[in-house]
Simulated assay, not measured.
Amino acid sequence: MPPAHSPGWEDRAVAWLLDHCPPDYRTYGAWRRHPLALAWLADRHLDGQVSAMRQAYREVRVELGDDLPATALAEVIEQLEREGLRLVAAKRAAGLVLEALRGTVFVPRL
Results as ranks from 00 to 15, higher is better:
residue 3 P to S: 12
residue 3 P to L: 15
residue 3 P to C: 10
residue 3 P to V: 12
residue 7 P to Y: 06
residue 7 P to R: 07
residue 8 G to V: 02
residue 8 G to L: 01
residue 12 R to Q: 13
residue 14 V to E: 01
residue 17 L to D: 02
residue 20 H to R: 15
residue 20 H to Y: 06
residue 20 H to T: 07
residue 21 C to V: 10
residue 22 P to R: 03
residue 24 D to G: 07
residue 27 T to D: 15
residue 28 Y to A: 09
residue 30 A to F: 13
residue 31 W to D: 00
residue 34 H to V: 08
residue 35 P to A: 04
residue 40 W to Q: 14
residue 42 A to F: 00
residue 45 H to P: 05
residue 48 G to M: 10
residue 50 V to F: 04
residue 52 A to C: 03
residue 55 Q to E: 10
residue 56 A to G: 00
residue 61 R to G: 08
residue 61 R to H: 11
residue 62 V to K: 04
residue 63 E to Y: 01
residue 64 L to C: 02
residue 65 G to L: 05
residue 68 L to H: 03
residue 71 T to V: 12
residue 71 T to N: 13
residue 72 A to S: 12
residue 72 A to Y: 00
residue 75 E to G: 03
residue 75 E to V: 02
residue 76 V to F: 02
residue 77 I to P: 01
residue 79 Q to N: 11
residue 85 L to I: 05
residue 86 R to W: 08
residue 88 V to D: 13
residue 88 V to K: 14
residue 89 A to T: 11
residue 89 A to V: 10
residue 92 R to S: 14
residue 94 A to M: 09
residue 96 L to K: 12
residue 97 V to G: 04
residue 98 L to K: 13
residue 99 E to L: 15
residue 100 A to T: 11
residue 106 F to S: 11
residue 107 V to F: 13
residue 107 V to P: 00
residue 107 V to Q: 11
residue 107 V to L: 14
residue 108 P to N: 08
residue 108 P to I: 03
